[in-house]
Design a protein around this nucleic acid. Structure first.
Lengths: 233, 233
DNA sequence: ATAAAAAATGCTGCATACAGAATACAAAAG
DNA sequence: CTTTTGTATTCTGTATGCAGCATTTTTTAT
């Protein structure tokens, strides 16, 4: 161990062997982002030739990444016709938010029971940063931290399966929320709910946290549903 | 041929005619079954050459299927080392069952609210068939119908996202439950809970159905946990 | 001019080929 | 005999090629 350190390597690279970034993960990430950010809109056929050229890879790894995304539910595989970006109707979104609410209610309970104090403090820190961006009117940063807080609450629940399915649904919904630009008063209400959440978590009040998380997401549906009127498939 | 045996596969699962029209889906299904039924045990490396030869396909579609399963969580991708069958520890299983319970509680509520009468009748029919297999002592058929009932309850909840994540977790757990051979009295208790479930559904008593489903899965954990003692990764 | 048929084009699905990493093996040093 | 180092083999990761299906365009007949 000391011989290694004597080589002058940074300590951060010691514990884990150098992991060459796998192309597969990169491609999955790139495609996911393209879909979430709307560069590939719903219904679009993914042309393997074009996409491959665009991303600088051959069709083989690209196809593998597409299959991965298909299992994730972001694209749909049509026999002999390739993959198309999945289109979500209003009901789909509502359903996903229902499940997400249920999952976060569970996460809240678990987090209150098993999270360590520093983890809760970390969420408080994220929240404070989010509020600063809110006050500055920076919607993009606000949304990012908003998502991060929800993800983090699920993470500190200590349930890996829960984190996984939650992440999956959240990924699918990112595309939608990206568009959701609510008015000032609703935005303020959302921030207020977040404040409640953090307070409940700090008090380790499972019932209250669970309730706020559920309410928060039900209101999220109301906020989003206006945008989606008639967007059914 | 000996190389094939080195994967731990029985010869009975060797080649088979493969439908030319939906190879990807077929491969995913075959591999999934091989994992669930234990022909590919946890920790096993998936050798693309051998598997491909065994299934009569080239590596390309096989790799695509593997990537799909990776996203499903049945296998794990290790850079430069291929895919290995994921290994679940006791805590993983417990976590999955927690989430599954929460999801089924939600499904039960939704089903009571929105299922059509014939859908409920269909579940009653499945239940009756299951009870017959129980009385005949046919564990395999019993388990299959047991699963089918839970899946069906989730399906008639009318929430597609819920059905999807539920199916995902259930698939991962199938491998575990396959092994779970509980004693006679616990088996009887499980059947009793099922009877309660169907009754609550027929009465459209959401609270009661939700409660029974949750209780049922918590007991499932107790039944399974004995088998898994010290099976942590 | 319109509709149907036929040819042409493009794309997907699968197989094969090749380069580089990982592992297994063997020989040499301690 | 154990450990190490160099080599051979195996397997993964990626690219490319070819056949078949879909779709579009052109041609032909009414």
């Amino acid at each position: 161990m000391d011989e290694i350190r004597s080589l002058g390597l940074p300590e951060s690279s010691l514990p884990e062997p150098i992991r060459r970034t796998a192309l597969h993960d990169t491609l999955v990430g790139r495609l996911r982002d393209m879909i979430i950010e709307g560069h590939l809109s719903p219904g679009t056929r993914l042309n393997e030739g074009q996409l491959g050229q665009m991303l600088g890879v051959s069709r083989t790894p690209l196809r593998e990444a597409i299959k991965y995304l298909a299992s994730e539910g972001l694209v749909e595989l049509v026999p002999s016709r390739g993959a198309v970006v999945k289109r979500f109707g209003a009901k789909d979104v509502k359903d996903m938010l229902s499940v997400l609410a249920t999952l976060e209610e569970l996460a809240g309970r678990l987090a209150c029971a098993s999270a360590r104090d520093e983890e809760i403090a970390e969420i408080r820190a994220l929240h404070d940063r989010m509020v600063r961006h809110y006050k500055a009117g920076d919607r993009l940063e606000y949304y990012k931290l908003n998502q991060a807080i929800h993800t983090r609450i699920v993470a500190i629940s200590g349930n890996a399966a829960l984190a996984e399915v939650h992440g999956m649904l959240q990924t699918r919904l990112k595309r939608i929320r990206f568009v959701g630009h609510e008015g000032a008063e609703k935005w303020a209400a959302a921030v207020g709910e977040h404040e409640e959440m953090v307070a409940a978590l700090e008090a380790r009040d499972a019932d209250r946290l669970s309730e706020v998380l559920g309410r928060h997401l039900k209101k999220a549906w109301e906020r989003v549903s206006e945008t989606l009127e008639g967007a059914g498939r």
